[in-house]
Write a protein that binds this DNA or RNA. Structure first.
Length: 835
RNA sequence: GGGCGGGUGGCGGAACUGGCAGACGCACUGGACUUAGGAUCCAGAGCCGCGAGGCGUGAGGGUUCGAGUCCCUCCCCGCCCACCA
């Protein structure tokens, strides 16, 4: 039966989608004997409809998953929905609906769109975090972590919106003109100290930091961001005595080598010692300053644009190295929560200290000289602080030491003398995860008058979120207003008690979902550790780089906890991370309603085809780069698929050509064969290395162009064409799976009726055909291109040189000049250097 | 201020360890086929120049037979963090 003349995706795509589904083609575990591969994309947050960004992540992951399946692996490629959380709750409040209802609708629409795009997901493993059977395990983990003191209750600083009267998440705080405001109501956001639950992620700081060294297959910028975020500072703690008092002020410094240049000490205004050491005559001014700082928002107070300001306390501290007395100040730029909340100021070698010293007329003393180059002038003539390491001067017994050595020696000295020691500080803070919100996992705690905070027993899990609650986004947590939820009995004594009304941060849900996919129906435990042994770590994880220091750090933390619980065995959850760029509008700006430049995937599939959209996404740029939407480019890719279709149609007579005749291919058909095999190599390498599918697709286009150029006559020609056509279908299938499947079946005909292309082996290339037998060699005279010659691969320098010198143009440039030198790069170029 | 990416035709992007810059696609131009073409196929195309040739990878310098690629100085753009002691 003759094949359809035209590419008609509208009927073709749903047909194959149905066929794949009926065959259970993408079910993981179908090849128990094969090596496993786990390809994961960040699951979507369905607070709205699916957008191009989603299409991009899933298309990248899907190409990889489909390819690996053809390489013979047992591939796990699951999908689910990150359904709980603040954005969904806010969206629901906005249109007066229940978040659950809204989310359910969005999930239905997402699912339909994803199926329309033909993603090879194992839908049997779909998870939805809003399902109590999912979040019960959040609660279970909470209890295990509580037992291990990884969860604790603390007084924490939260963002308090003065308009909504509630705590909001960091992500909801916008910075406008150095003022922090609420993204919803634009009211100022203040810091408010309230009790909250927190994860002791800082206990894992060292492990999270060291682990980064082993994540060689992660983008460096992501590991760097995590490294900075974890923020290890190695330094020293040095205790300054307070003159005329028994108190001491511990300061943390990374530059103890500069301590002989310390001319004052600064405390945070909230520092506990401020009250006791302030001199009576300074008290009024100091208290006024501290009070003003308390009222000022943190961002405003410590933002870089904020001017440095402070007041003298009247007290003096004693530098333990020199015995010198220096004044003690308080200032806005010193943070109570970092280090010891006190700094030793060395204005000559720290820019902040320098600016502060100049402003208040404090002395500046140079104690570090550069190893080479211009000397640093004395403090009074200094224009700016010099912060580089160097050689110590005017530093007592340490004078002449290099900074690095001095830090070690001086820390040891401090320790031996009992006034300090080498120590380290971390930037990472514990993860406060309670939310005064409704749409989250209820925290499984019961408050009893006699027993305090009592954990809910495992047997009583899940603590189910009540379906009805009044969600206004203001005042106390919504759950507090649901009496049938709050009222319970104490698990210990049975007396009336109240449930915790806070819920968990959404990031809890996404911290371990990759493991739930392994046994999504498991009712006895979060997941099956045996399955984890087979599938983890995730081989490739695709998602946006915006999660660098939130989700991607949290899930590494959670993985460590799961390992302590014996659930998983490897160090890290994800072997390789791929961060994909943004899909911008055609105008190069981020797609948004505001600019009216959004393009939704669904309508594009309707207008062109899923294969077209997928191809556009992959061809526009390598995965990690941002891309701009382009209607013209999309049309171009649609045309390409039509072109592929037509060449198959035009070469139907080659479909039956025998493979045995391939060896007879000669001339341009031997060239075609070479190109076919080089294309296989090129596309295969893209999958094996950098996932630059754009160049792989370009190679496929070249092969198609070559097919157009070749008119087969002899049987061997037709066999070569057939070989190319089969390769095109197979190589195209990870990118444009529907049309590839159809074309493959057209070529193969009856023998392939019951098979699927995705189950076929990935094409192999013949190394003998990939290697060329002749090469083009560029001929240069004095480094300038003057011609090119064809030479056999086996040709030596003398032969190539003779060929080159025979070239007319080259001869003209060589005429009358002495050849001083000839540079010959085999298989590439020959360069005559003439004088 | 710090960290990490980038800067290549009209546009998106290619270019392995220094070796023919601009693959592939878009837009564009010409031709063929056509009642028609915004379909399709073929061809052209970095810039200047009729041409020989010259000039070209953000700017300037350097190393080299040869630099988009390596080194130095600087400019611009993006993202993340940001008074972290």
């Amino acid at each position: 039966m003759a094949m359809n003349e035209r590419y008609e995706p509208r009927s073709l795509e749903p047909r194959w989608q149905r066929r794949w589904e009926e065959a259970g083609a993408f079910r993981a575990g179908r090849r128990p004997g094969a090596e496993p591969r786990y390809v994961l994309e960040m699951f979507p947050y369905p607070s709205g409809a699916m957008h191009m960004g989603h299409a991009r992540v899933y298309t990248i992951g899907d190409a990889l998953a489909r390819h690996l399946r053809m390489r013979g692996f047992d591939v796990l490629h699951p999908i689910g929905f990150d359904a709980l959380g603040l954005p969904a709750e806010n969206a629901a409040i906005k249109d007066g609906r229940h978040p659950g209802e809204r989310t359910r609708e969005n999930i239905v629409s997402f699912r339909a769109e994803m199926k329309k795009l033909g993603y090879a997901f194992d839908w049997d493993r779909e998870i939805v975090t809003a399902d109590p059977e999912y979040y019960r395990w959040n609660q279970w983990f909470f209890l295990r972590m509580l037992e291990r003191d990884i969860v604790y209750r603390r007084q924490g600083k939260a963002n308090w919106c003065t308009g909504c009267n509630t705590v909001i998440a960091n992500e909801q705080v916008l910075e406008k003109d150095a003022v922090r405001v609420c993204e919803r109501c634009s009211s100022p956001v203040l810091e408010k100290v309230i009790p909250e639950w927190a994860f002791r992620i800082t206990r894992y700081a060292r492990s999270l930091l060291d682990g980064l060294d082993r994540l060689g297959a992660w983008p460096e910028r992501i590991t760097t961001m995590q490294r900075n975020w974890i923020g290890l500072s190695q330094g020293a703690e040095v205790r300054f005595a307070v003159a005329g008092s028994a108190e001491t002020i511990p300061v943390f410094t990374t530059r103890v080598d500069t301590i002989y240049g310390c001319t004052y000490v600064v405390l945070a205004p909230e520092h506990p010692l401020v009250a006791s050491l302030t001199a009576p005559e300074r008290r009024a001014e100091v208290e006024a300053f501290a009070a003003r700082m308390r009222r000022t928002d943190a961002a405003e107070r410590t933002g870089e644009s904020a001017p440095k300001e402070g007041v003298f306390t009247g007290a003096r501290a004693v530098n333990p190295f020199t015995g010198e007395e220096v004044p003690v100040w308080i200032a806005n730029f010193v943070l109570a929560e970092y280090g010891t909340g006190a700094v030793m100021s060395v204005p000559a070698h720290d820019q902040r200290d320098f600016e502060f010293a100049r402003k208040y007329g404090l002395p500046v003393r140079t104690v570090i000289q550069p190893e080479k180059g211009e000397r640093t002038p004395p403090g009074d003539r200094l224009q700016a602080a010099t912060t580089e390491d160097g050689v110590l001067e005017a530093s007592g017994p340490f004078t002449g030491l290099g900074s690095e050595k001095a830090r070690r020696v001086m820390s040891d000295h401090a320790q031996a003398s009992g006034f300090g020691r080498a120590t380290e500080r971390w930037h990472l803070r514990d993860w406060g995860f309670s939310r005064q919100r409704y749409w989250g996992t209820p925290i499984p705690i019961v408050y009893c008058d006699d027993h305090g905070a009592v954990p809910v027993p495992d047997a009583d899990l899940p603590v189910v979120l009540p379906p009805q609650a009044i969600i206004t986004g203001t005042g106390e947590p919504p759950l507090a207003k649901v009496p049938e939820f709050v009222k319970t009995t104490c698990p210990r004594c049975g007396k009336p008690a109240r449930r915790e009304v806070e819920t968990m941060d959404t990031f809890v849900d996404s911290s371990w979902y990759y493991a739930r996919y392994l046994s999504p129906q498991d009712g006895a435990r979060p997941f099956d550790p045996e399955a984890a042994k087979r599938w983890l770590p995730v081989d490739v994880y695709v998602g946006g780089p915006e999660h660098a220091v939130m989700h991607l750090l949290y899930f590494r933390f959670w993985h460590r906890v799961m390992r302590e619980l014996g659930l998983v065995h490897e160090d890290e959850p994800v072997e390789r991370l791929v961060t994909q760029g943004i899909v911008n509008g055609a105008d190069g700006r981020k797609m948004s309603k505001r600019w009216g430049n959004s393009v939704a995937p669904g309508p594009m599939v309707d207008r062109f085809s899923a294969d077209t959209l997928r191809l556009f996404i992959l061809f526009a740029a390598p995965p990690e780069k941002d891309i701009d939407w382009s209607d013209e480019q999309v049309e171009g890719l649609f045309r390409f698929l039509g072109r592929v279709w037509r060449i198959f149609h035009a070469r139907q007579d080659c479909f039956a050509a025998p493979e045995a005749a391939l060896a007879g291919a000669a001339g341009e058909f031997l060239e075609l064969r070479r190109r076919t095999h080089r294309t296989i190599q090129k596309v295969t390498e893209a999958f094996d290395t950098d996932l630059k599918f754009n160049t792989g697709i370009a190679a496929l286009m070249e092969l198609v162009n070559a097919l157009y150029a070749a008119e087969p006559g002899a049987e061997a020609d037709r066999s070569a064409v057939r070989e190319a056509l089969v390769a095109v279908a197979a190589l195209l299938s990870p990118f444009a799976p529907h049309v590839a499947e159809e074309l493959w079946h057209e070529v193969l005909g009856a023998p392939a009726r019951d098979r699927l292309l995705g189950d076929e082996p990935w094409p192999a290339f013949d190394p003998a055909l990939v290697a060329a037998d002749t090469v083009k060699i560029a001929v240069q005279v004095n480094g300038k291109l003057r011609g090119e010659v064809q030479a056999a691969v086996s040709a030596g320098e003398a032969e190539v040189r003779a060929l080159a010198e025979a070239d007319g143009k080259v001869r003209a440039h060589l005429a009358g000049k002495a050849v001083r030198k000839v540079v010959y790069v085999p298989k590439r170029l020959i360069n005559f250097v003439v004088g």
